[in-house]
Computed example of a mutant assay.
Amino acid sequence: MELSVTEIVKIIKSETNIIKREKAIAFFFLNLIRELMSLALERVDQELSESMRNQGYQIEKKN
């Protein structure tokens, strides 16, 4: 969390143009959301795979 705050502060300090600053912050948050969703879906996939294995299914590969 501290890293995110540090990155936001850097963006705010680096951009003097308000529109560019807002775009940079929006881009930062979109990337953060994308990364968080990727990690969450990965965890759900792992839990589902484990659940299926526990039920006796064989999983050869993940796509």
Rank of each mutant, 00 (worst) to 15 (best):
55 Q>P: 09
54 N>Q: 08
7 E>G: 04
27 F>A: 15
62 K>T: 13
32 L>E: 12
43 R>D: 03
51 S>Y: 14
33 I>Y: 04
20 K>E: 10
57 Y>Q: 09
31 N>G: 06
62 K>D: 11
62 K>Y: 10
59 I>W: 02
45 D>I: 15
61 K>L: 04
7 E>A: 12
36 L>I: 10
59 I>S: 01
10 K>G: 10
13 K>C: 06
22 E>A: 10
54 N>A: 06
27 F>Y: 08
42 E>W: 00
10 K>R: 15
29 F>E: 06
61 K>S: 14
61 K>E: 12
30 L>Y: 02
44 V>L: 05
32 L>P: 05
15 E>Q: 13
28 F>C: 08
60 E>R: 15
50 E>L: 11
38 S>K: 11
8 I>D: 04
60 E>N: 15
56 G>D: 12
18 I>V: 12
48 L>R: 14
31 N>T: 06
48 L>Y: 13
47 E>K: 13
60 E>Y: 14
25 I>C: 01
46 Q>F: 02
38 S>Y: 02
10 K>T: 12
33 I>M: 04
25 I>N: 00
44 V>G: 01
41 L>V: 03
40 A>K: 13
57 Y>R: 10
26 A>P: 00
10 K>Y: 05
13 K>A: 06
22 E>T: 08
27 F>G: 05
24 A>K: 02
7 E>P: 04
3 L>R: 15
50 E>M: 09
28 F>K: 09
40 A>F: 11
57 Y>I: 13
34 R>Q: 11
58 Q>I: 11
47 E>L: 15
26 A>K: 13
63 N>D: 09
54 N>S: 07
53 R>N: 10
